[in-house]
């Protein structure tokens, strides 16, 4: 299935938003995932495949807390912008992405980065992704 024009990043709590309403970079930090069988760190996203993707994301339930998962809404990012970021010499095509549909979430996917990348580079790239984020949608 081809990738859509945009993807969605949910905002789980107000710690991911600064006081002036801007998105915090740490929302886009990558994390090690022990369930992965490759050498990547990941961060969850939803693919903006259709108009229902926004509503679905805003209504997602956290399986652990049974509450609304993204209490503070979501942002969207244009995939072409991410690809452009990826082409920068300092990023050098180390970003990747995938679909990973789940039973309760057909839109689910991940942004990927190799787990051996230095932390400083990962966090710099996370800041670059945060710069691409749209206004918050609630």
């Amino acid at each position: 299935m081809p990738y859509p024009e945009k993807f969605i990043k949910g905002i789980p709590d107000d710690k991911c938003i600064y006081e002036d309403g801007t998105i915090a970079t740490h929302l886009f930090h990558f994390h090690e995932n022990s369930s992965r069988k490759d050498d990547n760190m990941d961060q969850s996203i939803n693919w903006y495949d259709d108009e229902n993707a926004i509503t679905h994301t805003l209504n997602q339930i956290n399986p652990h807390s049974k509450e609304i998962h993204f209490k503070e809404g979501l942002v969207t990012i244009v995939l072409d912008d991410l690809e452009w970021l990826n082409k920068r010499p300092g990023v050098n095509n180390i970003l990747n992405y995938e679909r990973q549909p789940l039973d309760q979430n057909p839109y689910h996917g991940n942004l990927l980065i190799h787990k051996d990348i230095p932390k400083k580079s990962m966090k710099k790239i996370s800041a670059g992704i945060a710069l691409l984020a749209s206004q918050i949608i609630r």
């Binding site: 230095p118 932390k119 400083k120 966090k123 710099k124 800041a127 710069l131």
Partner: peptide, 8 residues
């Protein structure tokens, strides 16, 4: 490992 960044 502490670091800084500037991205534009």
């Amino acid at each position: 490992e502490s670091s800084w960044y500037l991205v534009t």
